[in-house]
Design a protein around this nucleic acid. Structure first.
Lengths: 280, 280
DNA sequence: CAATTTTTTGAAAAAATACTACATTTTTGT
DNA sequence: ACAAAAATGTAGTATTTTTTCAAAAAATTG
């Protein structure tokens, strides 16, 4: 918990003098972090050791350490927490909240991602003869994005957002093929069927999906991320951003693995796009 | 500017010894804020006054004050600094860098977004009879994502990633239609043509694109965001994430504008998806 | 309600830490 | 190669924080 919150919450557990210190700090945290222990003690009308004891009570090493913690809690202009959109938020408010929620999701996705699994996924992808990305509904755009990225690697890539096409694609798949299934919940029936079908042909199935979900169980390799729940009435937003970033990670791992010469090729692809643009 | 960024940026302006200090701090800012000036000096293999001078050069009052500033810059999640992927980064390193870059992009996109323009965009969208999202190449997935979101609003929505279809769609467009064009650079010739075509039918054209770009000039309303350059050889990553988040913002603004009853409908759409899932 | 124990508090000394002045070294320009 | 300027370090000084310990206040008990 944020240090300033902690002070407010535990206000009751302090002694009389310590509470004076707490109140002075709450009144003006900015003053507090720029004062010496002596100045703060004077402000609160207590002795210096009291201030020091107050700091220790908040699980800090001492006064300087306490100032550090307090400074950090002030720095988080808006803590990424509990930023759900309200009924009566204006454009400014909901814009900020949504961007901040997205950032918080990425943070938590990053921390929960297993980099060893990422590495194995890159292994599998670099060895693939052909790569397919499948996603339905909201995950379709992620699959499309993935195709767009891997397409530049001059590799057979395909993407489908249609169950029939996925099926057909799986039937002709070989053991040299890698199929990447994208599903936030991991509980979409048709996706589970697809995974099953793909494995019957010994294709490699990588799932970007929820841990321990039915779909995850069907995959050869699972990449899962903890993304704070989309608690609102609206629609899944956070998860797609995290998935897209994961695709970026895979694509980057892929190019790094392929080495320098390979990246020269990429430059050429990028160059070729310039011709479709107007001059500056 | 964030203190840690400042150190990275001004690395060249430091003297030899001061750079040693800077490097030690960049290598482990957490260690830095928990060390005394003596400990840090030893780590950097310089004298204490050098560390002190280094702090002053960064416009702080001295070492303790510097630690405060550094602590604050660390508090904002992760040091979003110069996190370009290196040739010899391992999976752990490049995963973190990419996620952090994405977060930094969102932060900067958020700060550069004009919320008044967002509000006007929401106005236009709520009044539209029909909404189309167009995007080519990398922006296609964003357009698809947008369609997926707005589709739930029980509205005529379409999305195309194909110039011919876009053209056809524009020709039959009316003045009650809103067309959202997504292009990172704003310099893709065919998109500019499309915008022109749409305006001939008095359709409303909203551009999610670069400020002052040729495409921006053709639009009735432009939503632009400053996203740190994709400096690497690879592909555009940051911009798409920002665009997607912007779509989330628009969708949210849309639902808020439509009021409570409308959101009840959304719940039903969400509910209907559950039937396609396996039980927990 | 007084006696005893426990807790809280602050003065002062001790320790740790940061800063200043100045000397020395290194770099830069001629 | 020399002088001037800049950078760096040594050593002493000042500041700040922490510890110690004794007094005061509050709580507990007979």
């Amino acid at each position: 918990m944020n240090t300033l919150e902690k002070i407010t919450t535990n206000l009751d557990s302090f002694s009389k003098s310590e509470r004076k210190v707490a109140e002075v700090i709450i009144a003006s945290p900015q003053t507090a972090i720029h004062s010496s222990i002596a100045a703060l003690a004077k402000l609160a009308d207590v002795s210096e050791p009291t201030v020091n004891r107050f700091c220790r009570r908040l699980d800090t090493k001492g006064f300087p350490d306490f100032k550090l913690h307090l400074a950090q809690s002030l720095a988080n202009g808006t803590p990424y927490v509990n930023r759900n959109v309200d009924e009566d938020d204006g454009p400014e408010a909901y814009t900020n909240k949504i961007f901040e929620t997205a950032m918080a999701s990425l943070e938590s996705a990053k921390n929960s991602l297993d980099t060893a699994a990422v590495n194995r996924a890159v292994d599998l992808l670099t060895q693939a003869n052909k790569i397919s990305f499948f996603g339905l509904g909201a995950s379709a755009s992620v699959a499309q994005d993935a195709m767009n990225k891997f397409f530049r690697f001059n590799l057979p890539v395909s993407y489908f957002d249609d169950v029939v096409m996925m099926r057909m694609s799986c039937i002709v798949a070989t053991e040299e093929d890698v199929i990447v299934l994208i599903s936030h919940t991991g509980r979409t029936k048709s996706m589970i069927d697809i995974a099953h079908l793909a494995k019957q042909n010994d294709s490699t199935v990588i799932g970007i999906t929820a841990k321990d979900s039915p779909l995850a169980k069907e995959c050869n390799l699972v990449l899962s991320m903890e993304v704070p729940e989309d608690t609102d009435v609206f629609m899944p937003m956070a998860s797609r951003i995290a998935q897209m970033t994961l695709i970026d990670v895979l694509a980057t791992g892929f190019t790094l693995r392929r080495g320098l010469k390979f990246r020269e090729n990429l430059k050429r692809v990028k160059q070729s796009l310039i011709e479709s643009r107007v001059d500056r």
